[in-house]
Design a binder for these strands. Structure first.
Lengths: 219, 219
DNA sequence: AGACAGTGTTAGTCTCGTCTATCTTTCGAT
DNA sequence: ATCGAAAGATAGACGAGACTAACACTGTCT
């Protein structure tokens, strides 16, 4: 198993996640996600293609090779296992784990990751509902509907939320918008208006941008 | 709390540990411990003195400033807490933890270290018997006698062993030469000859180089 | 005291990963 | 069909951290 620098791993993960969401990744998107200059991305892409991790032709879009995807999946596994472990075994709050995992994922050995996963019962998802790839790199990542897709009267279960913004996570927790919660859409104002969502015995107004970051399962 | 690069941390720790053992650290010693060229040490020392972490004059010996010592103690704490946690909470063997901790110590936040320490009951020593600095940077590191210092007929308790060589650790474990074990010196051949050591119901022959790496407490 | 082995420093180069500034390509709007 | 704005690539620089080769200092042994 080849080992990569922290930077290389970060680029691979960024490309992986962007192309998961949108089919392929663009230079500017990677630059934005990693907060580096686009020139830095160009330079790194040259190195990555040289190592056979990324395929790319001039002015074209970026995609991971098989090798690159394997590496990225390992990294995603490391990240999500660490997040789950921190919450379950060490009492972290779900808004505290992302940045810690961002650093640890580059330092943790496969053995450590597997022991952590075993210690907390091989969870299928991380604290934000994101699925954890298996040790062999299998990942089932369904396309979910979002809260914003619900029609008035519909009921659903929250299965996943976006995980990068601690403040958002604290807000969601305060509303009890957490994976596993059952929600129902009471009203939906026209013209991209706010939704009225009931969860438990409370109702909340939710704007479309927020609603788009909460994923639900037909239920 | 300033944050340092992995390299800077490694140098600080190396200088700290060398000067603990011998009062001061020399360029070649640091180079040998980190397996880098002496020229690299000279270059790094220039940077470190610039940052006020090390005091040094040309051709003189290296010592940490107060600031440098504080940083090194934090790093040592991180290392030893991680080692203890891996053994106690995740079932690592004591010969597997050193290299894992070497990587994790650079990535773990103070919060993580403190939670790990709390989760395993704030141990005073790591799995090899080395004392763990407190969160406030206090470290009690007594000078112990070694197994080689024992006179025939003397009894003692093993309190600590050197921790860097996994093979050595496996060998020591197979002999039950572990912290906490009570040993007695039955014989000591003259002219730097081997010692005959009893531990439990078994006796073993131990050469002086090995005996010097096992620390004991009068008991 | 002088010679020499060992220790330490300097000089120059390399790679990695970043930047800014500039140039090229692509693509959508007219 | 062209023009201009994004997007992307290139050129050149820089800092960190490493190396080798060459040079300087120290301390010891005779």
């Amino acid at each position: 198993m080849a080992t990569f620098s922290t930077s290389v791993e970060d680029y691979l993960k960024a490309i992986f996640e962007l192309s998961r969401d949108e089919g392929s990744a663009a230079t500017t998107e990677v630059a934005a996600r990693l907060t580096v200059a686009t020139a830095s991305v160009s330079a790194m892409v040259r190195r990555l293609t040289g190592q056979g991790l990324v395929s790319h032709e001039r002015y074209g879009s970026l995609r991971l090779t098989k090798k690159g995807k394997t590496a990225a999946l390992q990294l995603v596994r490391r990240h999500r296992v660490i997040e789950a472990y921190l919450v379950t075994a060490l009492g972290y709050a779900w808004d505290e784990v992302h940045s810690e995992a961002e650093r640890l994922e580059h330092a943790a050995s496969p053995r450590l990751i597997n022991r952590m996963a075993a210690a907390i019962g091989e969870p299928q998802v991380d604290p934000h509902g994101a699925p954890i790839p298996t040790a062999h790199g299998k990942l089932e990542e369904p396309k979910y509907r979002t809260l914003g897709d619900l029609a008035p009267g519909e009921k659903a279960k929250i299965v996943r939320v976006e995980d990068e913004d601690p403040e958002l996570l604290r807000y969601l927790a305060s509303l009890r918008f957490v994976p596993g919660a059952t929600v129902s859409c009471l009203k939906k104002e026209p013209y991209e208006g706010p939704l009225t969502i009931r969860v438990g015995s409370k109702t909340h107004m939710v704007g479309p941008p927020l609603a788009a970051r909460i994923f639900v399962n037909a239920s």
